Measured scan of single mutants.
Amino acid sequence: MSGIALSRLAQERKAWRKDHPFGFVAVPTKNPDGTMNLMNWECAIPGKKGTPWEGGLFKLRMLFKDDYPSSPPKCKFEPPLFHPNVYPSGTVCLSILEEDKDWRPAITIKQILLGIQELLNEPNIQDPAQAEAYTIYCQNRVEYEKRVRAQAKKFAPS
């Protein structure tokens, strides 16, 4: 494992614990031996107030490669969400998460999670990743928002 990646992720964890947006979660997972795995984080993004996503808490896994922060983490909703920019596998399609697009090593975990929260309610229809959600979003916004509200209710924190 890269010392650069681990040191950056340790800084990220410290900064997150000191200050993070209300309702968001970002925690490194534990290895079988109980030690912390900084390369694999369990996160959760709350649906934004005043949107059909409100009330939901959407679980996301963030996986970092050894060359982080040169390369972005892979962000994957578990379980996958109904959304035009979420692949059926759950992987998020967002330009700041793509090395050859808008990724920059200075982007923080907090910025990534806030960017994904923004994307939930403002899909990028130029870059669809899920045919069904994309089609319904474009053709029947009322039905799309109904499905999103049902999903938010399903993923409401207990």
Results as ranks from 00 to 15, higher is better:
residue 147 R to L: 14
residue 35 T to N: 02
residue 22 F to M: 01
residue 72 P to Y: 00
residue 73 P to Y: 03
residue 111 Q to E: 12
residue 91 T to V: 15
residue 15 A to I: 10
residue 79 P to G: 14
residue 111 Q to D: 12
residue 58 F to S: 04
residue 48 K to C: 06
residue 26 A to L: 09
residue 93 C to W: 00
residue 2 S to R: 04
residue 137 Y to Q: 06
residue 12 E to S: 04
residue 141 R to T: 12
residue 104 R to N: 01
residue 14 K to C: 15
residue 28 P to D: 06
residue 118 E to D: 13
residue 96 I to V: 13
residue 142 V to K: 15
residue 84 P to Y: 02
residue 147 R to F: 03
residue 58 F to H: 02
residue 121 N to G: 12
residue 54 E to M: 12
residue 141 R to H: 13
residue 22 F to E: 01
residue 131 A to T: 12
residue 59 K to P: 09
residue 87 Y to D: 03
residue 84 P to G: 03
residue 81 L to M: 11
residue 75 C to L: 15
residue 127 D to K: 00
residue 86 V to F: 13
residue 16 W to G: 02
residue 8 R to N: 09
residue 34 G to L: 07
residue 41 W to L: 00
residue 81 L to T: 03
residue 120 L to S: 03
residue 114 L to N: 12
residue 25 V to S: 08
residue 105 P to H: 01
residue 85 N to D: 01
residue 72 P to H: 05
residue 155 F to Y: 11
residue 50 G to S: 12
residue 41 W to P: 03
residue 18 K to L: 04
residue 18 K to H: 08
residue 49 K to V: 15
residue 82 F to M: 05
residue 67 D to G: 14
residue 81 L to C: 05
residue 49 K to P: 05
residue 97 L to V: 14
residue 112 I to E: 04
residue 124 N to C: 12
residue 99 E to K: 11
residue 90 G to N: 02
residue 12 E to I: 01
residue 9 L to I: 06
residue 57 L to N: 09
residue 100 D to A: 13
residue 95 S to D: 01
residue 57 L to T: 07
residue 48 K to S: 03
residue 35 T to L: 02
residue 53 W to K: 04
residue 28 P to A: 10
residue 122 E to H: 10
residue 68 Y to N: 04
residue 134 Y to V: 08
residue 104 R to Y: 01
residue 106 A to S: 14
residue 143 E to W: 08
residue 135 T to S: 11
residue 58 F to Q: 06
residue 94 L to D: 07
residue 7 S to D: 06
residue 119 L to S: 06
residue 36 M to W: 00
residue 124 N to V: 03
residue 55 G to N: 09
residue 88 P to N: 08
residue 44 A to M: 14
residue 76 K to S: 15
residue 9 L to E: 07
residue 52 P to T: 13
residue 25 V to K: 09
residue 75 C to Q: 06
residue 86 V to P: 01
residue 55 G to K: 09
residue 148 V to D: 01
residue 103 W to E: 00
residue 26 A to Q: 04
residue 70 S to L: 14
residue 91 T to Y: 10
residue 45 I to Q: 03
residue 139 Q to W: 09
residue 133 A to I: 03
residue 34 G to W: 07
residue 31 N to T: 08
residue 151 Q to H: 05
residue 78 E to F: 04
residue 158 S to A: 12
residue 9 L to F: 00
residue 62 M to A: 09
residue 30 K to D: 06
residue 41 W to I: 04
residue 85 N to I: 03
residue 30 K to W: 03
residue 105 P to Y: 03
residue 113 L to M: 11
residue 102 D to G: 14
residue 59 K to F: 13
residue 25 V to H: 09
residue 143 E to H: 10
residue 28 P to N: 06
residue 145 E to H: 02
residue 115 G to D: 00
residue 42 E to H: 07
residue 81 L to Y: 02
residue 66 D to I: 10
residue 15 A to G: 10
residue 158 S to Q: 12
residue 87 Y to C: 01
residue 129 A to H: 04
residue 107 I to K: 06
residue 120 L to T: 07
residue 129 A to D: 05
residue 10 A to G: 09
residue 20 H to N: 00
residue 61 R to P: 09
residue 30 K to F: 07
residue 7 S to K: 07
residue 107 I to F: 10
residue 30 K to G: 09
residue 68 Y to A: 04
residue 116 I to C: 15
residue 111 Q to H: 14
residue 106 A to N: 01
residue 129 A to L: 00
residue 145 E to C: 08
residue 89 S to Y: 15
residue 156 A to H: 13
residue 127 D to L: 00
residue 92 V to L: 08
residue 89 S to L: 10
residue 2 S to N: 08
residue 128 P to W: 04
residue 3 G to E: 12
residue 114 L to F: 12
residue 57 L to M: 13
residue 119 L to C: 06
residue 29 T to M: 11
residue 103 W to F: 08
residue 44 A to W: 09
residue 83 H to Y: 01
residue 12 E to V: 04
residue 72 P to N: 13
residue 107 I to Y: 06
residue 47 G to H: 07
residue 122 E to I: 11
residue 13 R to L: 05
residue 153 K to E: 14
residue 93 C to S: 00
residue 13 R to W: 00
residue 127 D to M: 01
residue 31 N to H: 11
residue 9 L to R: 00
residue 35 T to Y: 05
residue 22 F to N: 04
residue 48 K to F: 11
residue 20 H to K: 04
